[in-house]
């Protein structure tokens, strides 16, 4: 179960450690408390980790408490990329633009 490999930072945040998956450049941070963590989908955790491996990602692959599995990136996700080494991805915005 992937939840066991996450680290609770504090009452509202879980960390997906950078060693969770080979290739991750930064950690993942999911804003969930102990109530909402029960609803975390394993596939959504994987997506947070996958995004953390994208080139030029800055600081962390972040997800909000309304996180659920989306197209490539989770819905409820925030990812910032460096303008020099980073990327832009339509999956990071989704189909329902704006």
């Amino acid at each position: 179960m992937s939840l066991e490999r996450l680290i609770r930072i504090d009452e509202t945040r879980l960390e997906v450690p950078a060693g969770y998956k080979q290739g991750m450049l930064v950690k993942g941070v999911i804003y969930v408390d102990r109530t909402l963590e029960k609803e975390l989908e394993p596939s959504a955790i994987e997506q947070v980790a996958n995004v953390a491996a994208l080139p030029g990602i800055v600081k962390a692959s972040i997800a909000m408490p309304d996180i659920h599995t989306g197209y490539g990136f989770t819905i409820g996700g925030v990812a910032a990329f460096d303008l020099q080494d980073g990327i832009i991805s339509p999956g990071g915005v989704g189909y329902d633009i704006n």
Partner: peptide, 11 residues
């Protein structure tokens, strides 16, 4: 890419 749905390009 871990997943082809993450398709992207350099900024």
């Amino acid at each position: 890419l871990f997943d082809k749905e993450l398709a992207c390009a350099p900024v």
